[in-house]
Nucleic acid binder design. Structure first.
Length: 497
RNA sequence: GGUGCUGUAGCCAAGUGGUUAGGCAACGGUCUGCAAAACCGUCAACACCGGUUCGAAUCCGGUCAGCACCUCCA
């Protein structure tokens, strides 16, 4: 199915056409690993994951998905410095080697990051690569040399800056973000080091070495400029090296449009002579109870925080995916609960279908095999759901269609073929949403301890004799022991909670 | 100041000029001694004021309110 995407370059929804047939190359701005990623970060990564999954499942593309790990920047350096208060024992022992400390700290948070996204249903195996910035210093230096050679950069006080004014003579600076240059420059001068730069809005490509910081040698025309890369150059070099230019889609949060992505375009054009990508896709922010969530504001939740509050990470994924990625998502605990209920309703429906299938085991084991839908009813449902997802990843409408189907169809009214088709469709859909399970539904004989069964029996007897106080008391006791009594027409059931 | 976004029922959230978005909650019902679960049903909205139109949540103008980015930030 043809995919449509909103492209930040044109500010409209466009038909997606890959650079090479049948393959999509995606680069996603990844985390800066100086702390645990928070839920707001996660929305960006969930969006990127949604995109690559839709490309695979609905677009039938082969996907190369790259997400970088920014492990060198002001914050990773700050927090890894000797005697930093951000250091903890799990990272190891600090040495007087700044680079060694940097790697220890960032590897620690990198591992934590991957754990966290996997909890949210993002599979690390889906990444073609997760390059670390420090592994591509050479490539960054090569790009900087090219930009210098093309006269779009200058050296000042040991640092190297991009010359925006020169660039603007022949190129557009402000493709993703309309810039009012008069105002923009004036505003920027206040906080910037104007003595070092020809223009306040010139951004840094290479920062000169400072005492106690990790650094790399950089020889230009026989002279060494020890230092480290600027933030924007990292992505430009890595995406070219790993994916080649131009690749298909670059993702990130809306805040990255400027300056980060604007600068990526400029660097790539100025150095390689080509823009990095054909489609820029940006997700909107996540807010908490209507307020912006950010690292600096301190009102953020990490995945770990939410797990401590006993939230199911599957519910978090589902809730975030049930809003469109280009609208602000308002995170509330009530919203997560609503998402949980909604997700369970679908699961219940799937389970009732499974219950009615004659050879469940076989059907489940064959779900992952390629298969054409046979029944018009489910074909129609698939068409509705898939075309919504293909239309700029419209998950809310896709889910609305699913719920309409569930509301209008009873499991027992579907015939055997329709049931199998439905399961197959849901299996496909689950490759995107990662919210449901397909497990054999049987009357499971859970081992209930004898004393619990005995108590339940006593409660049933009490109930029969209309001694409800006693019955309720026993029910409460059983609940405290971790079991739940459910009355049925036949008698009662005991479930482990 | 510049750039941009948003304002839809109790809450969340789609809406591409005309026909039920959807979810949660609530309420009613089936089932229960009561519950729980499940299922069935009901319910409501378009910030405000003008305009265009046979018809506007949707287009245009204005007003008000909120938010974000321009500074590290997904």
């Amino acid at each position: 199915m043809k995919i449509k995407l909103f492209n930040s370059l044109s500010r409209r929804i466009e038909d997606f056409k890959p650079v090479s047939n049948g393959e999509v190359r995606i680069y996603s701005c990844g985390p800066t690993v100086y702390n645990y990623a928070h839920l707001g970060n996660m929305r960006a990564f969930l969006f990127a994951d949604l995109l690559q999954k839709v490309m695979k499942v609905i677009g039938k593309y082969k996907v190369k998905w790259v997400m970088n790990i920014t492990n060198i920047d002001d914050k990773t350096i700050r927090d890894s410095q000797l005697n930093s208060s951000a250091w903890n024992a799990e990272m190891g022992v600090q040495t007087d080697d700044a680079f060694d400390n940097l790697i220890k700290l960032t590897r620690f948070y990198e591992e934590a990051f991957i754990d966290d996204i996997e909890k949210l249903g993002i599979n690390r195996k889906d990444f073609f690569a997760m390059p670390r910035a420090t592994d591509y210093i050479k490539e960054m230096q090569d790009l900087i040399l090219k930009i210098l050679k093309n006269d779009f950069a200058y050296i000042s006080d040991g640092s190297i800056y991009f010359n925006v004014n020169n660039y603007r003579k022949t190129e557009t600076y402000g493709k993703l973000f309309k810039i009012d240059f008069d105002n923009f420059v004036a505003g920027m001068r206040i906080d910037s080091d104007q003595y070092e730069r020809e223009q306040a809005n010139d951004f840094v490509l290479w920062k000169s070495y400072k005492e106690g910081e990790p650094f790399w040698d950089f020889e230009i025309d026989g002279k060494n400029y020890p230092g480290r890369p600027g933030w924007h150059i990292e992505c430009s070099a890595m995406e070219k090296e790993i994916l080649g230019l131009p690749f298909d889609i670059h993702t990130g949060g809306v805040d990255l449009k400027f300056p980060h992505h604007e600068d990526e375009i400029a660097q790539s054009k100025a150095g390689y002579g080509i823009e990095p990508t054909n489609y820029w896709c940006h997700n909107e922010f996540l807010e908490v109870e209507g307020e912006k969530m950010s690292k600096t504001a301190g009102n953020f939740f990490t995945i770990r925080d939410l797990e401590e509050k006993n939230l199911d990470t599957k519910d978090i994924r589902f809730a975030l995916l049930s809003a469109h990625y280009r609208t602000k998502y308002n995170f509330t605990f009530a919203g997560i609960e609503a998402g949980h209920k909604a997700r369970q309703r679908v699961q219940t429906f799937i389970n009732s279908i499974l219950k009615d299938i004659t050879d469940q085991k076989k059907v489940i084991s064959e779900l992952e095999e390629k298969r054409e839908l046979q029944t018009p009813k489910i074909q129609e449902l698939q068409e509705k759901i898939f075309s919504e997802l293909a239309n700029d990843l419209h998950t809310p409408k896709a889910l609305a269609n699913l719920f309409l189907f569930i509301n209008n169809n009873k499991p027992e009214e579907l015939n055997q073929e329709e049931k199998i088709d439905f399961l197959y469709l849901m299996y496909q859909l689950n490759m995107i949403f990662n919210a449901w399970t397909f497990e054999e539904q049987k009357i499971v004989e859970i081992k209930i301890p004898d004393n619990i069964v005995e108590m339940a029996q006593r409660r049933a007897d009490a109930k029969k004799q209309k001694k409800y106080d006693e019955a309720d008391k026993l029910r409460a006791e059983i609940m405290d022991l971790g079991y739940q009594i459910l009355d049925t027409k036949e008698g009662f059931e005991i479930n482990k909670i």
